[in-house]
Amino acid sequence: MRTARIAMPKTARKGDIVEIKTLIIHPMETGFRRDDVGRPVPRDIIGLFTVTYAGTEVFRMDLFPGVAANPFAAFTTIATETGEFVFTWTDDKGVAHVEKMTLTVS
């Protein structure tokens, strides 16, 4: 089980610019490190983070080992309609963590 946090308003007026901040627990292991007995620590990276809003992608982020552990992202989107946000973090092995939030637009 991964833990993620998403900060965004529950409601907005149509046309408002909504700010969204996200965090997720992940070591973002670079693959460049060695453990204390000299064995390489295998790479384990979230490489892709996407956000869809009522079915349309509104934000996409490609992450490399240079992104800090427990990745943080902040971005904006225009409130267009009441709908579901789907946040998907996908790691190197194709494993995805999904969170959903609803924005009510008036």
């Binding site: 996409r60 490609d62 240079g66 992104v67 800090a68 990745p71 971005f75 904006t76």
Partner: peptide, 21 residues
């Protein structure tokens, strides 16, 4: 490469944040 942010007009504003190594 550290990070890439892909935006669309629906962002409303081109301002992004993260933390890097």
């Amino acid at each position: 490469d550290v990070v890439r942010f892909h935006l669309t007009p629906r962002a409303g504003r081109a301002r992004v944040q993260t933390s890097v190594r």
